[in-house]
């Protein structure tokens, strides 16, 4: 598991907790130290198993997929109150989110 973009080499036999943390940052999931090292250990086996996909032949995919379109018409949706009802925090008629930076 390497940090460097473009590296698709045989990296899955070397997963350390730092690399797990890098992916966790990308995924916006905070981890404690114990989780990071446990995941590092498990990911070695799981990624090694995924590596067997290497042997899969290239296969022509079915070409009969088509986009499904509908008219862009206004329908009744949730009221603002309904949409806000599950929010942990609201300010007036808005969701309250954390600051951007």
């Amino acid at each position: 598991m390497s940090d460097s973009d473009g590296d698709s080499g045989d990296a899955s036999d070397a997963v350390d907790p730092g690399e797990v943390r890098h992916v966790a940052d990308l995924a916006r999931v905070a981890l404690d130290d114990e989780e990071a090292s446990q995941f590092a250990e498990q990911f070695v086996d799981i990624l090694a198993y995924f590596d067997s996909l290497d042997g899969v032949p290239e296969v022509d995919r079915e070409a009969d997929l088509a986009n499904v379109m509908r008219a862009d018409e206004v329908h009744e949706g949730l009221s603002q109150g309904e949409a806000l009802r599950n929010a942990p925090e609201t300010v007036e008629d808005y969701f309250e989110g954390p600051r951007v930076s």
Binding site: M1, S2, S4, D5, G6, D7, S8, V20, V23, A24, L26, A27, V29, L31, E35, F39, Q42, F43, I46, L47, F50, L53, D54, V56, P57, E58, V59, R61
Partner: peptide
């Protein structure tokens, strides 16, 4: 958490072709 992290990894730059594209072939 385990699945979100492994999925993020499989889609990340440099690994997309190795894992995700190969899985679609499979």
């Amino acid at each position: 958490k385990r699945r979100i992290l492994l999925g993020t990894y499989a889609l990340s730059a440099g690994y997309h072709d190795k894992y995700y594209k190969k899985a679609q072939d499979a």
